[in-house]
Design a binder for these strands. Structure first.
Lengths: 218, 218, 218, 218
DNA sequence: GATGAATGAGTTTTCATTCAT
DNA sequence: AATGAATGAAAACTCATTCAT
């Protein structure tokens, strides 16, 4: 119910109807609506935490970048295994101060982890000079957005899918039109690139590692 | 009030108290709580839309990357000019379907815009081969996260700020300790890198353009 | 409603039905069921406080015993004027700690007042040696019980009145039977001696002053 | 639990926790919460009934006043023997009609008994002319109040006891100050006169018999 | 005889919205 | 145009009681 309607729009009535239990039974297991949400949240955070490893310099652990790729893939797979929980956690619905703090802590830890990976890169001389916090925050944001859309895409597969991108995709202008046939690749791309988790992980990692452009900003 | 407490925790009573008007007066100008929120949202989206330009190939418009940099900077400055509105829009509080659609449309447009920039890069041969949607979504996520934290930082400047990163920052191990003095740059970084908007824009752009590592994934 | 059903058996639903107002309207004027009860209580206590005077030795104030009689009469009349409130306060229904303390304070004040009257009697040499606290507590208890039954009697006048005394009034035995005519006074007494407030006050005062028996205990 | 928290604030959960039994077990022995309360009540009322004797004119039974004194003493001792039960019965918590009637009947019987004692006094010519019902009700009220406070005092011996009398005890004025030493008796009285049961019984009886003042009201 | 998970009617409280003044 | 008292639907939560094991 939380996944479908969000925290606020979901009433305890919705939950007990869906669970086919009596009102009192609900309060036998959870002291409040907040608590069940926090419990679900915490459960998911624990699972996700378990799917992430720090980047190690120990050669036995393999190449740092390979470790990072493994992390990305594991996280995405875990999220897919727990679609419902992942959805409510990623929605980041307004919770009370305690649950908020729990989630904030988690994200800080993720940022710390990514930052550490960047520092490892610095030490090895394979990462360019940069502010590791900004990089880590950006990477976290990118990951969250990608995962959110991946899950939304899955939810929409069976349900009605309003084609939101329609108006957004700019009408082809003479100046920068997608000349038909020039680079068939783009138009031949699958409707949603979020379908293949491993490809997703790799694209994300490549973006993280290499950026997009071959020519520098300055 | 929406900025301080979020959409749900803000009651019409909070609004009219803060506005020093009567209950009835509120409903003279807005038909519902949802409407005032949607109006604020829409206002901000309009302003932000105005601060973004499509990347043009016309040489008169300057280098594509310079245009991108200008876009990043304008967006950040606009967000800073409208901290309150930006905060409530970025919080992405669960609203009704209509407001949801409005916001989704906006983000699709942003994604379309970034995607177009990537396609321009492809056409000019200055962007590596990649899935432009994944890139665009990632960039959007990175931008949202950065802006959110930038605003949170500003809100927290006067207020108490619990140092969440404490547990996250791994205790230095022998293998990958931050040897003091080796690379003073990192440790000499300002406590929050979110203070200088232009530097933020540049770091973000560089991450977008170049990624982090000099060595490829594969 | 509180008078009829007591605090716990009265629901906010009962109150708003009786008051012919909407649920929300109730909470516009009272923050809780407890509060309206406390407000009613406090109102009554204030009125009663206003009807009691300390016994003064100033000759202008009249005889001490006359002052006491006036107090008794005023209290009884005030209770009759506020039958409903008096009933709920005397019922002493379980309230929260605050209301409880309020009521306890009130009764302590009454005890203090009666105790003071007794001390005045001691000073004037017109009161026998006794523990003033025990006397004061007893007098308070007597007054409460009398008032409670006076009010119950009034409530029962129109309503059905189960004759509770039936089994209690001992069946006339040869040893101590109420020989008809022997002491016509007792049997000629009105069915309820609680009907005439002033007589009630005087009987109570006489009991307080003179006790019942002409012969001493020891 | 009833003694500590009163009827309404005590839940079946409290009872079974304290009794270390399962929920179902409770309903094996009592059909409802009301019933267990009624059973406890009835038990106490039976014990108290057993501790009271009618005043007899048979010389073998001793002086009427001595019989009364014995009654008072027995009641007080019985109450002390059953502090818990006495407390819940005296609290007179709002129960259902049946339990209410049971208690009302009991009090009517007590009133009948006291009234009978007064009538005996009348017959013997040792009681002044008075309304026996008012006297009986007053005596009952006095007794209840005294017993209530005696029990409250015992409960508070170990617990913190807020000195409620503070505001009530009038500040000594020149007119009616308690000249130190004048009547040391009063001020030398023990902090609580409720500690000694027999003394309590005797004070109460003396109050009942002789009242307080040596000079008549009229 | 004991257990305790399940029940659901009933209660308090909130708050967006209306409308007569 | 402004007001604010009144509304009532909807929500969270409690707890005495039942009954299959």
């Amino acid at each position: 119910m939380f996944k479908e309607k969000g925290y606020h729009a979901t009433s305890v009535g919705d939950i007990i109807d869906a669970a086919r239990i009596a009102r009192g039974t609900f309060y036998l297991y959870f002291t409040s609506k907040r608590e069940i949400f926090a419990a679900l949240s915490a459960g998911f955070l624990a699972v996700i935490r378990g799917s992430v490893r720090k980047i190690s310099l120990d050669p036995a652990e393999g190449e740092p970048l390979a470790q990072m790729r493994a992390n990305f893939r594991r996280v995405i797979h875990t999220v897919l295994q727990h679609e419902d929980l992942a959805t409510i956690v990623l929605r980041d619905d307004a919770l009370d101060a305690e649950a908020r703090a729990q989630l904030d802590l988690f994200y800080e830890q993720v940022i710390g982890l990514i930052g550490q990976a960047v520092r490892v890169g610095h030490r090895l001389g394979i990462a360019r000079e940069c502010d590791e916090t900004i990089i880590a925050v950006s990477a976290l944001g990118a990951l969250k957005e990608i995962l959110t859309r991946m899950l939304a895409g899955r939810r929409a597969t069976s349900t009605a899918l309003p084609a939101l991108a329609s108006e957004a995709s700019e009408p082809p202008t003479s100046t920068e039109a997608s000349e038909p046939g020039e680079l068939g690749v783009a138009s031949a791309a699958p409707p949603t690139p979020f379908a293949d988790p491993d490809r997703l992980a790799d694209e994300l990692l490549r973006f993280f590692v290499r950026g997009v452009f071959t020519q520098d900003t300055r």
